[in-house]
């Protein structure tokens, strides 16, 4: 009951934020935007609202939702509250993949092609961490530290690629922290199917995920082929991350923030947790984009500048959340063992 209420409130909040994004902006006032939505405005105004703002809003929501699902899956299956796309090599691998696709150009650089290469990159990044972590034992903190190192290598490679192609350096900000600038309907077309697939697959696998998130031995005792199912479930997280990164860059720490907020309400039932994490992720990105645009408007400057990327806002808040979790977790560990 309480969960349903919170879910409803979250949905209303997300819808409200999306409405603000759609109606308020530097070029049009809310009334004109509303008229454009109702089809009672001139062609230019309609184009601004329907072809510039609407896809931006939808992509932000879907990218955030994807990251929420990915984070919730990763945290469950790795049994690690600090797991998130950006600290497991999955996010930075997908980022490298996206940039590789852009460098290759042609059909590969189409939104769907970028997402496919990002998927390959995310899989490789995650596999790299998995290979490293297998030798280091099961300490969750150590896994995340290794993940930070893997991300540093992949991020460095990404930056080298971006500078090797000077014409790409303009999009540097998007890839590095995630931004919704310059996204259109073609990106949306490549993003929503991935969100639908990963959300549905996540819900279908919720039972398996629940078993895996407790303990391998119990899962095995119940007849689950643990390592095979773990790979399948991890793939869901990689698909969701890759689609999100290919569309909007790596919106930093949304995949950490959103599942935590959702878990605080929904507990660990993944059938409730996954949709709620998707909703929180969408809301986080929408709120961050509104905040980023307000921040940009507050600092005087030329209209042609890039403006604060939404990912910078999520990075600062997400980092604070990460620090909070680490502190709590480290004390719990030491008290538990000592």
């Amino acid at each position: 009951m309480r969960t349903a209420l919170v879910g409803l409130l979250a949905a209303v909040a997300v819808a409200g934020l999306a409405g603000v994004q759609l109606l308020v902006g530097s070029t049009l006032d809310a009334g004109t935007a509303l008229a454009a939505l109702a089809g009672r405005a001139d062609a230019l105004t309609t184009a601004i609202v329907l072809d510039l703002r609407a896809p931006r809003v939808l992509i932000g929501l879907a990218a955030g939702a994807c990251l929420g699902v990915a984070g919730a899956v990763l945290q469950g299956v790795l049994r690690n509250p600090m797991a998130a796309p950006e600290v497991t090599g999955v996010g930075s691998g997908a980022m490298l993949g996206s940039v590789v696709a852009t460098v290759v150009g042609g059909d590969v650089a189409s939104p769907a092609g970028t997402a496919a290469v990002a998927l390959a990159g995310g899989t490789l990044g995650g596999a790299a961490l998995w290979a490293l972590a297998a030798r280091s034992g099961g300490d969750p903190m150590r896994l995340v530290v290794l993940g930070v190192l893997v991300s540093a290598v992949l991020g460095g490679t990404t930056l080298v690629l971006l500078t090797a192609r000077p014409q790409l350096t303009g999009s540097m900000t998007r890839w590095l922290v995630g931004s919704l600038n310059g996204r259109g309907w073609e990106h949306w077309a490549a993003l929503w199917p991935a969100l639908a697939v990963s959300l549905v697959a996540g819900l279908l696998l919720a039972g398996v995920l629940g078993l895996l998130s407790v303990d391998d031995d119990h899962a095995r005792a119940l007849g689950l082929a643990v390592s095979r199912w773990r790979s399948v479930v991890l793939l869901v997280a990689v698909v969701a991350t890759a689609a999100s990164v290919a569309a909007a860059g790596l919106l930093a720490f949304v995949g950490l923030l959103a599942p935590h907020a959702a878990r605080a309400v929904a507990g660990s039932d993944h059938r409730v947790l996954l949709p709620l994490a998707a909703l929180t992720g969408a809301g986080t990105v929408a709120a961050a984009d509104v905040a980023a645009q307000l921040l940009t408007a507050a600092v005087p400057g030329d209209a042609g500048r890039i403006g604060v990327p939404a990912g910078a806002v999520t990075a600062v808040f997400g980092a604070a959340v990460l620090i909070g979790i680490v502190r709590r977790r480290s004390r719990a560990t030491v008290e538990g063992t000592g």
Binding site: T173, L295, G301, D302, G307, P309, A312
Partner: peptide, 8 residues
């Protein structure tokens, strides 16, 4: 990154 994006 935000500062760089904010500046001209």
């Amino acid at each position: 990154l935000a500062a760089a994006a904010l500046s001209e």
